[in-house]
Design a protein around this nucleic acid. Structure first.
Lengths: 333, 333
DNA sequence: TTGAAAGCGCTAACAT
DNA sequence: ATGTTAGCGCTTTCAA
């Protein structure tokens, strides 16, 4: 492959200085029309592509954002990644993807690499958020924003779904259908949203019996196991921590010969794509992934421009109830 | 934020030249131990991180690979992305993610951006591959490798699952169970693997009736619709283009009151995570995503080092039959 | 063993 | 309206 044309090559061919080429191509400053045309022609003929590297070195910004994801295995995250990529792209930013795994050490290493690559900012999308985790994120030499998890008190800006509100909507939906004894399959406390979602369920249950709470693991297996504990507990509906949990619960119930929603209602959280494909299709709370991505990117860019309404409260986005077929009125007594 | 320390700052603090700092930190060349220590200390004290940008400009390589994905909506791709990211990371490369969408125009634009960012090479992961598509990929000024789709005759290196072989394994599994009349739900021909998978099914059916082939769309909806056409066709088993298709088929069959696998067997392809969660859990052909990622990265790096065993045949990787519960013997006559 | 200096390809003052 | 020039932060000859 012949070496790529540089700005000097274009300048020479067009018979102008590199400065002029730069001006014409970046549309900044002015140039007489004939000059402009010559430059454009030369650039085209040489198939010239400006070097983002050289530009980044000069401008001291790469127009690149780091995206650190810990759990691409959860089908919710690809949606978020996709949304973030689109939002960034629209604003002229590229995304360097880092698959953190769940090991903070490894994650620290990834962070370092992102910093060496001189990303302008970093988005961390992860459901789990421990204190240790937050501690080293705070030390980042680059602006960070968290998506869908908050590092309480760390001052790290975050944008998240209104988890508590969403869970309340879920439980309220069940109550509205006539359910009074409600079960909740929760997630371990390192899931940043676990406590809020449980609280939300309780919010909807004022004046009603407390929910029967059992612990899952945020995945299908945990949901399946936890659901066993709920069978015969007298609950007529289960609000699950997330869709994966609900899918597990659905499986257990089916195997136990328990009909959903005739005998028991199940509601999830997230609205991952496959929620529509379960049997019965899952009623759930949709997280606004598109908005989440857009806000995360915008907040980060704000921070870069110093116009940071920084720290402050996490920005909360409203979720939405999606009624499908896994919920219905409780069975008659 | 105070400006990041540069190599000059470190040099000054350690009382040496920048050249020495560079040598010590990149471990190239030699330095007396005391010098080394002083440099290391200075770097640590200043929390120095070399600028990958400046380095890239000098070395003319970014140690970054572009990853162009067209269909993050298909749950198979996150697995591939994850595998590629890990493989690249292990070899010291970062990944710039581009979410192509399915529009070749848009994709071209993404490609351009990757080139401007001076990625060292590009991996394209996409199930669809039209002639037009291949045509512009061939013009890329940067080495490309295709994952799981081949651009026949384009000479673009590719690594893919042995689709034909996999489909044959699927159909052979059904035949082995005693099935003789087999249905196949295919995908539109712009899916690079569609033809091969159909051929594979036929391969396993020598001496048996031809398969009954109906067309899906590679997604759940298409699978569901296509399966309707198969009910009452006399087939006792369905080999599906992929898992999403199979999930759609499962849904249709359940609604039609047709028991799987007692009355009809269903087998998928891909082994996406949720294949294990369907009801019944889906028997399928597992694509070796980890290997796929590793090979793709390695092939690309080979091309970068000129040691390209280039063009040549697409490298084919062996899939694996995963038997779950959606397949069984045909019903007695 | 270490240092001086010349770029890598661009942009942005500053001149003209 | 256009050109000259000084870097951005590194690596890498080449000299000492």
């Amino acid at each position: 492959m012949p070496d790529r044309a540089t700005i000097a090559d274009v300048a020479e061919r067009a018979g102008v200085s590199t400065a002029t080429v730069s001006r014409v191509l970046s549309g900044v400053g002015v140039a007489r029309e004939p000059t402009r045309q010559r430059v454009l022609a030369a650039a085209r003929e040489l198939d010239y592509r400006p070097s983002g590297i050289a530009r980044a070195l000069k401008r001291r910004e790469t127009r690149t954002l780091g995206l650190l994801v810990t759990d691409l295995g959860n089908p919710f995250y690809p949606q978020v990644v996709s949304a973030i990529e689109s939002a960034a792209h629209e604003r002229g930013y590229g995304i360097v993807l880092s698959n953190g795994g769940d090991d903070p050490e490894r994650e620290l290493e990834h962070l370092d690499l992102l910093v060496e690559r001189r990303v302008d900012g970093i988005i961390v999308a992860s459901s789990r958020m421990t204190g240790r985790h937050a501690a080293f994120l705070r030390r980042s030499p680059v602006p960070i924003v968290l998506v869908n998890s908050t590092a309480a008190g760390s001052g790290i800006p975050a944008v998240a779904t209104a988890h508590r509100r969403g869970a309340e909507m879920a439980a309220a939906h069940l109550v509205g259908l006539g359910h009074r004894r409600i079960g909740h399959i929760g997630a371990p406390s390192e899931h940043a949203a676990a406590a809020q979602r449980e609280a939300g369920v309780r919010d909807a249950l004022v004046g009603l019996p407390d929910p029967v709470v059992v612990q899952g693991d945020g995945h299908v297996e945990g949901g399946a196991r936890a659901a066993e504990g709920l069978i015969g507990s007298g609950v007529t509906a289960i609000a699950c921590y997330n869709d994966l949990t609900a899918i597990g619960a659905l499986r257990t119930l089916r195997r136990a010969g328990c009909h959903v929603p005739q005998q028991l209602s199940v509601i999830g959280f997230d609205d991952i794509e496959m929620a529509a494909w379960t049997d019965p299709p899952l009623t759930t709370i949709r997280q606004p992934t598109g908005e989440l991505g857009r806000w995360a990117v915008d907040r980060l860019l704000d921070a870069l421009n110093g116009s940071g309404s920084n720290g402050a409260e996490p920005r909360e986005l409203e979720p939405e109830l999606v009624v499908r077929a896994s919920t219905g009125p409780p069975p008659p007594e």
